[in-house]
Nucleic acid binder design. Structure first.
Lengths: 239, 239
DNA sequence: CGAATTCTTGATACGATTCAAGTGGAGTGG
DNA sequence: CCACTCCACTTGAATCGTATCAAGAATTCG
């Protein structure tokens, strides 16, 4: 069930059989969510952390005027709110952007891991650190990239992350977001997102039809985005 | 020497004497940096992590066209690149924004802590998670707040963080950044930063003279910023 | 098939950048 | 001590980017 999580973590460092067993054991419950359902809601104090086993989800925050900012996108294999284990109250919500299969791990088990399995703890810590690295790239993209480059960068990032959990076929991947949701990721209006998207299509960098994105020209896309995947492909090397 | 770090961490949970001793022991070196000196450079693979003992520093990234985005601001007591312990290569640089006193802790010592001191490990992990929470707030601010509200939010955040390490006097705090640097935080041009700043001054929300910011009207400033300090005041409660 | 979303387009207004110039204060050397 | 230089801050004008509003086209769903 949690194969994608194992895949995700083993990209960082070798997972022993014992560690794999531990991970399987701590995910004691699972549930399916429909599109637009809240998986975790803002302000709650969860006693378990959610692993995305299948589907797309987003961390988001609403502003007083009803606008929304998505602060993170999650794909299969992501430990979405591992940070809630220590950061007791959720400062944001998590919503299902497609039908989602989600596993849950009690915080007591996670605490046990920190007490008894240092290597696995470091691996989980690393997972939250990569989250942070992605946040920083997003900040850079929002502040200093053109919208076109920002969008290109996001596509590159998603491609690399999805490839790591075997959710790509050649240069294609399933991408169920609407343009409204994608605009909430970039922090722009839908209209402008739409107009930003067009040159990427027109110039033959990518296609996006039937909830499927296909990258047509990886070299030009990464060049436009100034994409450097280092922040995603970190290893621990600390055993 | 590392009192501000201890102060910072004890805002999260009680630090035992043994833990305080450990922290004092692992910071084996310290160094002073001048304004604009790089404390850690992008792309390097540090074998130690830097604690800011005194001063202001920033994590930043340069774009190909020479523009810069600051992704984090650090104040006294911040473990600035604790994440470098697991995230081996620095995906950004750290620069001194004022004269800085910096302590260094070898990664081997940090690894030892994860092997033998689970509670302290969780506290350090929490520290990196709060970093992440701040990043998310910045993303929200960049994407969905007006520039005026974004600036106000930053001032609120800095005030709360500096107060936690006793670097405020009433509603004032030392703030040595130039407007160019502050513009690189918000991701806007200096000219526009200057024009964004003026209404905050004119409306009597704050003053900024002699490298000192004074908040004149905390209620109106927080209301404008939609500032909710929850993300900064997280406790572990996990002992 | 009709209704509801989602996507696309155009027009207008506002926000933000850039360029260019000017002000003011701090530090330096004669 | 003054003149000079440097740097940070401030201002205005022109241009470009982005939001908003409104409507129409395409797609999906029941």
């Amino acid at each position: 069930m949690i194969e994608s999580l194992l895949l995700n973590l083993s990209n960082r460092d070798i997972l022993t059989n014992a560690e794999q067993t531990t991970l399987r054991q701590i995910v004691t419950r699972d549930r399916f969510f429909l599109v637009d359902e809240d998986i975790v809601s803002e302000g709650s104090r969860p006693t378990q952390s959610a692993v995305l086993l299948e589907g797309f989800a987003a961390r988001y925050k609403f502003m007083a005027d009803g606008t929304r900012q998505i602060t993170a996108l999650h794909v299969a294999g992501d430990f979405m709110d591992l940070h809630a284990f220590l950061l007791k109250t959720m400062d944001h919500g998590i919503i299902a952007l497609s039908a989602c299969h989600v596993g849950f791990a009690d915080h007591t088990y996670l605490k046990d891991i920190t007490e008894t399995q240092p290597h696995l703890s470091r691996l989980l810590w690393l997972d939250t650190l990569i989250d942070g690295a992605i946040h920083r790239e997003w900040i850079v993209a929002m502040g200093r990239r053109s919208k076109k480059a920002h969008l290109a960068h996001l596509v590159c990032e998603l491609y690399v992350r999805l490839k790591a959990v075997k959710k790509t076929v050649d240069f294609s991947f399933h991408f169920p977001l609407t343009q409204v949701e994608l605009a909430d990721v970039l922090g722009i209006s839908v209209v402008h997102l739409n107009k930003t998207l067009q040159p990427l299509r027109r110039d033959g960098l990518l296609t996006w039809v039937n909830q499927t994105i296909t990258i047509l020209d990886w070299p030009r896309l990464t060049a436009l985005a100034q994409f450097d995947p280092t922040y995603l492909s970190q290893m621990v090397e600390s055993r």
